[in-house]
């Protein structure tokens, strides 16, 4: 554990909590892509199957259980409790494609051809692109509520901080997992446009609206 990793995890945790608070307080999931949330739930489910086989630390186990439980809770809120507020007609990204491509890539490029390892690799590839339906939705509507943009900023920062963590681990521990690193770079890269808008608009108290 190093400081980048810890702040990254806290940022991830903050993102999830911000999203749950936004939905719960406003009694609405408007502006949130249910498809991205489904993909994140699939990511956590496939990656954290090792909860049953591999103990790392109390911290690790607690975080995994929280991420799993909160992602299923989010899905429940979007598709059941507050489904009347879900903007289905704006959430039109073909997310099946992301799953298919991630499955194929995981089968072709992995560290070891075993079930758990391929599921882990799939979750890494899928996570890299899971935000695309959400970003697509914002592009389509041309705006996002400020709480939604805080959520996206925290979520995007998390993988960026992991990149610093990987650089640190490479130099200090000699540890390098290029599947996670390359996917993490792609994942962070997808947020670049959003980060720019967030820093230039939301941080100055304006709403996140896309330039026409």
């Amino acid at each position: 554990m190093n400081v980048f990793r810890l702040i990254g995890d806290m940022s991830h945790l903050a993102a999830i909590i911000i999203l749950l608070i936004k939905i719960w307080r406003s009694r609405s999931c408007s502006g949130i892509s249910g498809k991205s949330q489904l993909l994140f739930t699939a990511v956590f489910t496939c990656r954290y199957l090792d909860l049953f086989t591999n103990f790392v630390s109390i911290y690790n186990t607690t975080m995994k259980i929280f991420f799993l439980a909160s992602s299923y809770a989010t899905i429940y809120l979007i598709f059941m409790k507050f489904k009347a507020t879900y903007n289905r007609n704006h959430d039109t990204f073909r997310f099946e494609l992301l799953i298919v491509v991630s499955v194929i890539l995981a089968l072709l490029i992995n560290h070891e051809f075993s079930a758990t390892e391929i599921l882990w690799t799939f979750s890494i590839y899928l996570e890299a692109v899971a935000i695309l339906p959400q970003l697509f939705m914002i592009t389509k509507t041309g705006e996002a509520e400020s709480i939604t943009s805080h959520y996206l900023f925290a979520l995007g920062s998390y993988r960026g901080l992991y990149i610093l963590n990987w650089i640190y681990r490479y130099y200090v521990e000699g540890h390098l997992d290029w599947i996670a690193v390359l996917s993490g770079i792609v994942q962070t890269g997808l947020y670049c446009d959003f980060f720019y808008l967030y820093i230039t608009r939301v941080m100055k108290g304006k709403n996140l609206t896309l330039p026409a």
Binding site: N54, K64, E112, D177, A180
Partner: peptide, 10 residues
């Protein structure tokens, strides 16, 4: 097996 080496991340 790689898992014990790097799947300590979230």
């Amino acid at each position: 097996y790689h898992a014990d080496r790097y799947h300590d991340e979230l």
